[in-house]
Design a protein around this nucleic acid. Structure first.
Length: 221
DNA sequence: GCGACAG
DNA sequence: ATCTTGTCGC
């Protein structure tokens, strides 16, 4: 089962949350790549009930076949508001509970949001990666950083720039479709992360992991 | 000062 | 995230 490191309590105020991000930021490992990625977890949160009632869904896919080999759903509440840059403090607690219910430990967490492509270089993917010490990457639908549009072909990419740092890539997963925004979460280098995202997007813009997790959360009212 | 700002 | 009509394309 997945062990979660006890690195902090969940904060109430924005100032506490920012302090936690700055304290944990040095723990991120920006290198590495699993020897073999056989399974990948997709994580997603739904808010269908109300603004503070959420459903966290995790699916583990066999990457080769795109079949779901394990999953978990957790219902929860949040009092932490949606604040861009403090996203993890809203979604991570429930996602972590869902991760702890998995029987299969995935080779990588594919998170719905940013990793290093974050104002303090510590987005949701970094946070979940550091707390579980599992390899993790972030795949966002909307960027927080500047980028020049990549070429129109699947596989084309341009760097994501934030304050002069290359914090990730705008990656075209489908020809002629808006790119996704890939960044390092933990223990997974950027090039392998983009390779994995392309493996997970044979048919759609978003990774199969994200899609199955999204459907699971949506179905479990 | 004002707008923009992952989901 | 969610609220929503029509439209284009495979």
């Amino acid at each position: 089962m997945i062990e979660v490191r006890d690195l902090h309590d969940w904060p109430t105020t924005e100032a506490e949350a920012v302090a936690i991000q700055e304290r944990l930021r040095p723990l991120v490992r920006t290198d590495g790549e699993p020897a073999e990625v056989r399974t990948a977890a997709g994580l997603d949160v739904d808010y269908r009930e109300s603004a503070d009632e959420l459903v966290a869904a995790v699916t583990v896919l066999d990457v080769a076949t795109a079949s779901v080999v394990d999953s978990a759903v957790v219902r929860g509440r949040t009092d932490f508001p949606y604040v861009p840059g403090l996203f993890a403090f809203r979604e991570a607690p429930a996602l972590i509970r869902a991760l702890q219910e998995l029987a299969v430990v995935p080779d990588v967490l594919v998170c719905d949001g940013q990793g290093l492509a974050h104002p303090r270089r510590f987005g949701l993917a970094c946070h979940l990666g550091v707390l579980t010490d599992l390899p993790a990457i972030g795949v966002g639908k909307t960027p927080m950083s500047h980028y020049d549009p990549p070429g129109e072909k699947r596989g084309d990419w341009t760097p994501l720039d934030m304050d002069g740092d290359e914090v990730g890539r705008a990656l075209r997963t489908r020809t002629g479709v808006k790119p996704v925004f890939v960044s390092i979460g933990h223990r997974y280098a950027l090039q392998p992360a983009c390779d994995l995202v392309l493996r997970l997007t044979p048919n759609y813009r978003l990774p199969e992991t994200t899609r199955t997790a999204d459907r699971l959360g949506r179905q479990s009212t």
